[in-house]
């Protein structure tokens, strides 16, 4: 076991993935500089420019080319520099990457991974703080994965590379350096499609993913001081969603608080709440609460703290469901 931060764990996973000769990395500034977050640091030197490809500033080009490579038998890992810069590639993703399997009735497939740093909290410029995972979750044919620990980042990324279908791999910018944890030396995968009960509890289930797991964990710790035993559930895979694990938890606790930093309306929390209402309605002791970003553009640095859900907002929501 080695203690790594999330950026280092992802770097180790990419390095491991490149042991497979079908794997190539494409993206802006991923080679010579090692990526703007240094996630691919050192990989160009180790694996060479045919495998770690610095591209022109061209997101549609990156994803469209990665799609072609994937159809032809490679396993490309494309990087979008920030989620807010991924939209020029959106047509490639929604019209082609997600559809070729169905369009060709399995004859052609696009097993590629698109890595997307996302989320607010670092006071960056406009377009650098987006959390629009619901856009991708809404596209049939894609898988959408979002780790919150270095361990899961490593294992899910290798699982995404192995996956026969296209995977949008979301990386919480805020956790690249701040999330640290043990990562085994031997390669491993974490299965896509499995949520994880990170901390068992009996009173309420806090359901979160990615960057917001940090606030969710802090809230659970704070709630323990008020004798509220919160179960902490890390979604880890948005699509395909692990309904079973969520329902097992919520039917036991009877209360759920869903947390994400994306805008509230039509955010993925709405889908989670709907699943709970459809399948666990009679187990609920209180309405499901959602703690989310607002239906606004993510504010710039000086007002960002008004937007990203705080530990206090999560705690307050738990108290509300406990009162019922």
């Amino acid at each position: 076991m080695t203690e790594l931060n999330m950026a280092q764990a992802l770097n180790a996973a990419l390095d491991r993935a490149l042991a497979d000769e079908r794997v190539v990395l494409l993206g802006e500034d991923i080679g010579q500089t090692g990526g703007v977050f240094r996630v691919s640091d050192g990989l160009l030197e180790k694996h060479g420019p045919d495998r770690v490809i610095d591209t022109p500033v061209s997101e549609a080009g990156i994803v469209g080319a990665a799609y072609g490579m994937a159809v032809a038998g490679l396993r490309p890992i494309a990087e979008m520099q920030f989620m807010g810069f991924s939209y020029p590639a959106f047509d490639q993703i929604i019209s082609h990457v997600s559809r070729i399997r169905n369009r060709s009735r399995h004859r052609f497939t696009a097993p590629l991974v698109i890595r997307v740093p996302y989320g607010a909290g670092i006071g960056a410029a406009e377009h650098h703080s987006e959390s629009t995972e619901a856009l991708y979750a809404h596209i049939p044919g894609l898988k959408v994965v979002v780790p919150s620990t270095p361990h899961d980042a490593y294992g899910l990324l290798l699982a995404a590379v192995d996956d026969p279908d296209p995977v949008i791999f979301l990386e919480p910018i805020r956790l690249y350096r701040s999330a640290r944890g043990e990562v085994p030396e031997e390669p491993y995968t974490v299965p896509i499609g499995t949520a994880k009960v990170e901390k068992p509890g009996s009173d309420v289930t806090i359901i979160a993913y990615g960057s917001m797991m940090r606030e969710a964990r802090a809230a659970a710790t704070e709630l323990a001081q008020s004798d509220i035993d919160a179960e902490l559930l890390d979604v880890r895979t948005i699509i395909p969603f692990d309904t079973e694990t969520v329902l097992e938890s919520v039917t036991r606790t009877g209360r759920a608080v869903v947390v994400h930093e994306a805008p509230r309306t039509a955010g993925f929390g709405a889908e989670i709440a709907a699943q709970i209402y459809e399948h666990a309605f009679y187990s609920l002791l209180a309405p499901v609460e959602r703690v989310t970003g607002w239906d606004t553009v993510v504010p710039l640095r000086r007002a960002e703290q008004h937007y990203v859900p705080s530990v206090g907002r999560v705690v307050a929501a738990v108290h509300r469901v406990m009162e019922t």
């Binding site: 309306t265 607002w294 239906d295 606004t296 553009v297 504010p299 000086r302 008004h306 307050a316």
Partner: peptide, 28 residues
């Protein structure tokens, strides 16, 4: 900006559902 002000330039007028969020943001 205050919490309320992040809502004020999304539309010409703040629609009712957003006004609810605006009030909640201020309370938070």
């Amino acid at each position: 900006f205050t919490a309320e002000e992040i809502f004020d330039a999304m539309y010409a007028e703040v629609p009712p559902p957003l006004a609810i969020q605006r009030r909640r943001a201020a309370e938070a």
